[in-house]
Design a protein around this nucleic acid. Sequence first.
DNA 1: CGTGAAAATGATTGCGCAATCATTTCAGGG
DNA 2: CCCTGAAATGATTGCGCAATCATTTTCACG
Lengths: 340, 340
Amino acid sequence: MSPTKAPAERTATLKDVAEHAGVSPMTVSRALNKPETVSDTLRARIDAAVDALGYVQNLVAGALASAGSNVIPVIVPSLSNTVFVEIVAGIQEVAQAAGYQLMLGNTEYDLEREYTAVSTFLGWSPPGMIIAGMRHLDRTRNLLKRWGKPVVETMEFGAQPIDMNVGLSHYKAGEAMAEHLVARGYRQIVFVGCRIDADYRAAQRYKGMDRVLAKHGLARREALSYEEPSNPARGGDALMEVLRMKPKADAIFFANDDLAVGAILRAQREGIAVPKRIAIAGFNGLPFASLVTPSLTTIMSPRHEIGRIAAQQLIERISGRTPIKRRVDVSFEMQVREST
Amino acid sequence: MSPTKAPAERTATLKDVAEHAGVSPMTVSRALNKPETVSDTLRARIDAAVDALGYVQNLVAGALASAGSNVIPVIVPSLSNTVFVEIVAGIQEVAQAAGYQLMLGNTEYDLEREYTAVSTFLGWSPPGMIIAGMRHLDRTRNLLKRWGKPVVETMEFGAQPIDMNVGLSHYKAGEAMAEHLVARGYRQIVFVGCRIDADYRAAQRYKGMDRVLAKHGLARREALSYEEPSNPARGGDALMEVLRMKPKADAIFFANDDLAVGAILRAQREGIAVPKRIAIAGFNGLPFASLVTPSLTTIMSPRHEIGRIAAQQLIERISGRTPIKRRVDVSFEMQVREST
DNA sequence: CGTGAAAATGATTGCGCAATCATTTCAGGG
DNA sequence: CCCTGAAATGATTGCGCAATCATTTTCACG
């Protein structure tokens, strides 16, 4: 194709290796996939032949012949949100170590695209699948159920998973933060997020908060939602807007730490006293949250851990091992800091 | 496997669909892959049959039969570093839109693992590959060259790519920042990073800086490198350490913005005047960089764009279209802000 | 030193699909 | 109405490997 590249010779196959080593193809296959079933002598000869020919296993053919690949599809709604990335990283860590490859699908929070992705990925005969969230099209759920192989839904903890579930209850997280704010004496609490309609986990945190406010007979407000994706600058702007539009507000619960940290940095620059003039709380537990001044009260979600557990659960099941909790509620952790 | 899941019936194949629709398997294959070559009548019947049977194409078989898949392997050294994630996101965006799937490999900055990953991924008969960095084992380079299909090396811009290359010159970036610091009057400049031996792009930035210092006859120092991965808290600690150990230092060039922003937040908390007591500069252009006080002088690297361009280049070549620049030097952008 | 069971190796087959070539159908001109 | 070429459809084949079963070799033990 390009001047510097050698012409692509036909790549070596199992058969070539077999001939080169003077054994049958089947023995080569075994030497590569179950080395312990082949005698030392032959294994050595075969390894030498593999090196000599630069043989690379054709995994496609292998997957077809054995009706199953070692590719694990991972479907997330976004890659611009750190949260999903960290989950993917956790999955990767465990899966790659166990010899699985990750195939990555991004739905952009679109359930139709999610269906397409699931459907396409099934075509790779994977041994299982990991998918973010528990809200899917009926078609998607049915497709996965009929498929009958292990599936892990991550991020949130919820009822009636398709198969397995690892996550945390965002509703409870919202409740916990609201209880904290109320206990601290805040009475006019505002929830601020981005694309809350699409990010229904954020919506659940809002609902959890709302329920607590109702319980305490406090003023309840619609969540304030912006159309752009979450980013720190937006958080800063939102803070200013809240101060202007709802001067009585005494606390903001941001949908995530990107927004919340952005708000704190802005407050600092503008000389707004946090938490005196207004308290700020976030969700996720970003590294910066503990370093800003004032440090941010937030809820730590164990993203990496969720990914790891999800992958472990899946691999256990793929390997046919049995006793597993189908639903894992990873706990979140309130981090009360200076901003409230 | 689990009580709630239906027994997995044998999944429908092309042949099943063909029988259901009363046509030959080949026609079904065409209807699915090149719809325009099949008459409207049959296409409708076939689509109906597909729906009726819930048929999902077996991509493994397709890939084997046509000796090529539409999976693009992407190999990165880490997923905990935002930089790579953003590149992956950029690649994803373009690749998924063009109907390709991404397979993700993580080398943890280990060149042996990189070789293994490349080798394994070749087994999926991909049409091309994207790999981070230009430093590989000879074996890896040779393997890819002999393979003969399009390969894009990303992140940095360098000489003699395996095939194609999209990135920026980290050496020049280091020079640019050093020139800026020197022009501002700083004379005792320290470079601080994490795992600089493994992160050789950071090392190149250091070298670029070092050359400029030498040129101006200024004091040159070894880079200060920590063994843990970069994180903001480490940046803060490093700042304190530099102040204590090298009290004459008047500027720190951090290997990345995570460290630099962490240092600024720490300075703020400790009441250290930036840039008066010591100037701070970073690299990458994180969103928080412009929001901290003082705002951070840094170099913006177009990560997402690098990913997009890499994917575009690759797909162009895969599609057999010709006139393409083999090497793309995406420009970086100095952002001079308050911290210097 | 023979025997039987276990271990190692080999031959055959088919996974599900697309490339390829062969055949049929169709539209339009004479 | 036939002929021709193009479009649509079909039949055959093989991609490269692992599952499966058949065969050979090895080894422990009487």
